[in-house]
């Protein structure tokens, strides 16, 4: 089973990205499952996705995630048993740190053959996050295989330039994409997952 973890702050575009990826990749996989952990203002419409032949599980955790990584393994085991999905997309809570999830998967996630972390950052709020939530932002960036700087259509050119020059972005090893997940016609979904 392949696992794709989509992480990013609340409002960064995780749900939109998830829906676009699933739509683009649906024909590539026999069974796709989705784990929804962002219990916030915008959520995936589980009923709608079920009608599209996708299996959606909500993943519950407390107000901060101390048991999130545990619950993820339990949920993956449940999905494996029910649907044997080839690929699982997980939309992680905005307060989740991917490294904690990766450590638990490495230790207990025997059913997982490959994990990819896609971190999505709202370019319009990059300065806010880099000053105020730098620790969480770093945690998202450092663990990501693919870094998606989103909403560039709403961001001034000068600010995009500043983001590109920011040390956090420059020093990380992930493939970095500046994109607008909602409005761009092309999303390199297959490239991101290989």
């Amino acid at each position: 089973m392949q696992l794709v973890i989509i992480c990013g702050m609340l409002g960064s575009g995780k749900t939109t990205l998830l829906l676009r990826l699933v739509k683009l990749l649906q024909s590539d996989y026999s069974q796709i499952a989705i784990i929804e952990n962002e219990v916030g203002e915008v959520g995936v419409d589980a009923n709608y996705l079920s009608r599209k032949g996708l299996n959606v599980q909500e993943l519950y955790s407390g107000c901060v995630c101390c048991t999130l990584s545990t619950d993820l393994i339990v949920t993956l085991e449940k999905l494996q048993e029910l649907y044997s999905p080839e690929i699982v997309f997980m939309e992680a809570s905005g307060v989740a740190r991917p490294n904690d999830l990766l450590n638990t998967i490495e230790q207990y996630g025997t059913m997982i053959e490959d994990v990819k972390v896609l971190s999505i950052i709202d370019a319009t709020r990059y300065v806010l996050f880099s000053e105020m939530l730098s620790e969480l932002l770093c945690a998202h960036i450092e663990c990501s295989d693919v870094l998606i700087i989103n909403k560039i259509d709403e961001t001034k050119r000068e600010e995009i330039g500043n983001i590109k020059e920011d040390t956090l972005i420059k020093k990380n090893n992930a493939k970095t994409w500046f994109i607008s997940v909602e409005s761009d016609d092309y999303i390199p979904a297959r490239k991101w997952l290989t």
């Binding site: 219990v39 916030g40 203002e41 519950y60 407390g62 107000c63 809570s93």
Partner: peptide, 25 residues
Amino acid sequence: FLGMKVKLPGRELLDNEPYQVVEEE
């Protein structure tokens, strides 16, 4: 008393899922 909306097992959630707070403004 957390000051948040809560989804409860047996109400919004399945019987054996732990309660979930809802992060919203």
